[in-house]
Lab assay of single mutants.
Amino acid sequence: SEEELIEKAEKLRKEFEFIWNGIRFIIRENADEIRRFEELLKE
């Protein structure tokens, strides 16, 4: 039914948001290391 689809979509959206926030947190935490690594690659 349509309601089930909406519920599934909402659940997926929440899971995606949770994963995305996790990725963003990891990137933020490691931003300095990532930048340093990029500098090494440029040399």
Rank of each mutant, 00 (worst) to 15 (best):
38 E>V: 14
25 F>P: 07
5 L>A: 07
24 R>L: 11
41 L>I: 09
40 L>E: 02
1 S>I: 13
4 E>L: 06
24 R>I: 14
3 E>V: 06
31 A>S: 05
14 K>P: 10
19 I>D: 00
33 E>T: 12
15 E>G: 08
41 L>R: 01
21 N>F: 14
13 R>P: 10
30 N>Q: 06
28 R>D: 13
40 L>S: 02
26 I>R: 00
11 K>S: 07
30 N>G: 13
25 F>T: 14
40 L>K: 03
29 E>V: 14
1 S>E: 10
9 A>E: 09
8 K>T: 07
20 W>Y: 02
8 K>N: 10
17 E>C: 14
38 E>K: 07
34 I>W: 10
27 I>W: 09
22 G>C: 15
4 E>N: 08
7 E>M: 03
30 N>M: 15
39 E>M: 01
15 E>F: 15
8 K>D: 09
15 E>K: 11
10 E>W: 07
28 R>H: 11
8 K>P: 10
21 N>Y: 13
42 K>Q: 12
23 I>S: 00
4 E>G: 12
6 I>A: 05
20 W>A: 01
24 R>S: 11
28 R>T: 12
21 N>R: 06
29 E>N: 03
24 R>D: 14
9 A>C: 15
6 I>F: 08
32 D>Q: 08
22 G>M: 15
38 E>N: 06
10 E>P: 08
42 K>R: 09
14 K>S: 09
27 I>C: 15
24 R>W: 13
25 F>G: 12
27 I>T: 04
13 R>S: 10
39 E>L: 04
29 E>D: 05
32 D>R: 11
17 E>D: 02
43 E>R: 07
32 D>V: 10
24 R>E: 06
41 L>G: 01
8 K>H: 11
41 L>F: 10
36 R>Q: 05
4 E>F: 07
22 G>V: 15
22 G>W: 15
14 K>Y: 11
40 L>F: 09
27 I>S: 06
20 W>Q: 00
5 L>T: 05
22 G>L: 15
35 R>C: 14
9 A>F: 08
36 R>N: 03
16 F>S: 00
18 F>D: 02
28 R>F: 13
19 I>T: 00
43 E>V: 12
4 E>Q: 08
3 E>A: 09
21 N>K: 03
22 G>F: 15
34 I>L: 09
1 S>G: 07
28 R>I: 12
2 E>V: 11
7 E>H: 06
8 K>G: 08
13 R>L: 13
38 E>R: 09
43 E>Q: 07
6 I>G: 03
4 E>P: 08
19 I>K: 00
28 R>C: 15
4 E>W: 04
27 I>M: 06
39 E>P: 01
15 E>L: 15
24 R>V: 11
1 S>M: 12
11 K>H: 05
38 E>L: 15
38 E>Q: 09
1 S>R: 10
5 L>Y: 07
7 E>Y: 02
26 I>K: 00
35 R>H: 04
29 E>H: 06
35 R>K: 10
30 N>V: 15
16 F>I: 08
42 K>M: 10
